[in-house]
């Protein structure tokens, strides 16, 4: 029975991390800052400043999702085998 819950838990983790990655803009690299545009009234130009804000990238999301899916796969296999016994 523990394999069933383990596989459910890790598929939820994989889907959650994937969802966060998509919601954060499907970046390859994790971003720790986002651009904020400010306008100079005298010259009419725009400049960019950086504000701290976390956006999960594939560099971290990818390995977490891959590991979670592998654990899910083997847990589910164990669960199926335990049902046959």
């Amino acid at each position: 029975m523990v394999w069933k819950y383990l596989s459910i838990a890790f598929i939820v983790i994989a889907l959650s991390v994937g969802g966060v990655w998509v919601a954060h803009g499907t970046n390859i690299y994790t971003k720790d800052k986002v651009p904020v545009i400010t306008k100079d009234e005298m010259f009419g130009t725009e400049s960019t400043e950086w504000k701290p804000e976390f956006h999960l990238g594939l560099e971290f999301a990818g390995p977490i999702m891959a590991a979670s899916l592998i654990i899910t796969f083997f847990s589910f296999r164990k669960y199926k085998k335990s049902l046959l016994k």
Binding site: N27, Y29, T30, K31, D32, K33, V34, P35, W50, G57
Partner: peptide, 8 residues
């Protein structure tokens, strides 16, 4: 130079 990602 910065791109918003410390690792990049």
């Amino acid at each position: 130079m910065e791109t918003g990602s410390g690792s990049r």
